[in-house]
């Protein structure tokens, strides 16, 4: 998994590439925690993500809590990643572009 965090005024964008699974979720969690204090809004660019498991879901949901409800946006979800969010019902509570 590759992570690239960029800041645009009060908005931060974390671009993720690869698989978010039990082994890599920790890295993403750290990137989120590091970036959160410096941004009001956070965008997770997941156009490069081909796989996500429940470990990854937990980090995404955790990020939603950290930056505050409604301040997290998921971008560029591939069909099978979106399917995981849909299955678990998170499409209802997360901002997905």
């Amino acid at each position: 998994m590759k992570l690239n965090t960029t800041f645009d005024e009060k908005q931060c964008i974390i671009a993720i590439e690869g698989s978010i699974d039990a082994l890599t979720a920790g890295e993403l969690e750290k990137a989120v925690t590091d970036a959160a204090p410096q941004c009001e809004k956070m965008i997770l660019d997941m156009s490069g993500v081909d796989y996500i498991s429940s470990g990854g879901l937990r980090v995404v949901v955790g990020a939603n809590h950290t930056v505050g409800k409604g301040n997290l946006t998921l971008r560029g979800l591939s069909p099978n990643v979106l399917e995981i969010f849909r299955l678990t019902g998170f499409t209802k509570v997360l901002n997905i572009e």
Binding site: R58, L87, T88
Partner: peptide, 22 residues
């Protein structure tokens, strides 16, 4: 039961749910 799941607070049990969904 995903319909009764508290998406805002609970984050456990999702893994097993996914397994038996797929």
């Amino acid at each position: 039961n995903i319909d009764e799941y508290d998406h805002d607070h609970r984050i456990g049990g999702l893994g097993r749910f996914l397994v038996f969904s797929v």
